[in-house]
């Protein structure tokens, strides 16, 4: 319930009106959107029950290792209503050919694979919000200072998921486990997303915001 309350309103893409449509414009618009989502995510993280109880260093460690998984869940959740597009925002939907043209084809296949998996499962909002928080709590960050505090943070979210599933879906006793069993694919998808944007950056194809680059840097 706390995650439902603290869920930020979805952001809209902000394409430059004066710039003619092009693959570069798609990338610029996408990178700007993702950077703003990242900013919002950092504020959102503080509302996850238990997060601010962690040390500042551990808060950074979890965000540095889990941020792309949380961004991926945002996109995948928004894309649930579509069979073949990626909906990064209400006003930014990309088809496979648009992704390919922008150098995002690998990202497209990875995100669509995860999106269709959650579509088959009938993922709902409560579940995706809990998974987003878990992506941070379970991000296997290195050099954690307060391992016990992080473990309690994880256990709290795991308990919330189990309580939710047992009360809302009593006829599906394996549901919570099945959701947890999607986390490895989420991790793999996020790593492919990191590689894709890192490649775009090293190729100099699109300027990226400092925060986005700092967080990309933390993942490599």
């Amino acid at each position: 319930s706390q995650l439902l309350v603290s869920e930020p309103a979805p952001l809209r893409a902000a394409p430059e009106p004066a710039t003619p449509d092009s693959d570069l414009k798609t990338l610029l618009t996408l990178c700007d959107l993702l950077n703003r989502e990242l900013l919002v995510m950092i504020g959102w993280a503080k509302h996850i029950p238990g997060f601010t109880g962690l040390s500042l260093v551990d808060q950074m460690a979890l965000l540095q290792s889990g941020w792309m998984e949380t961004l991926v869940l945002n996109v995948v959740w928004r894309s649930q209503g579509s069979a073949d597009e990626l909906q990064f925002a209400e006003n930014l939907r990309l088809s496979e050919s648009q992704c390919r043209a922008a150098g995002l084809h690998d990202l497209y296949t990875a995100l669509r694979h995860l999106s269709s998996k959650y579509q088959q499962m009938g993922l709902n909002q409560e579940e995706v919000l809990t998974l987003k928080a878990m992506a941070l709590a379970n991000s296997d960050a290195e050099n954690v200072e307060g391992a016990e505090a992080v473990q309690r943070f994880q256990d709290g979210l795991h308990e919330a998921l189990q309580d939710y599933e047992s009360s809302q879906r009593p006829s599906e006793p394996h549901r919570a486990g099945r959701l947890l069993m999607t986390l490895p694919l989420l991790r793999q998808t996020a790593l492919r997303a990191v590689r894709c944007f890192s490649r775009l950056h090293t190729d100099g194809r699109v300027p990226m915001h400092k925060l986005f680059l700092e967080m990309l840097d933390a993942k490599i």
Binding site: I42, G43, K46, V57, M60, Q64, K210, E214
Partner: peptide
């Protein structure tokens, strides 16, 4: 080194 990061500032002064 971590202290100079944007993330550190954002977490510290609460957006």
């Amino acid at each position: 080194q971590e202290k100079h990061k944007i993330l550190h500032k954002l977490l510290q002064n609460g957006n």
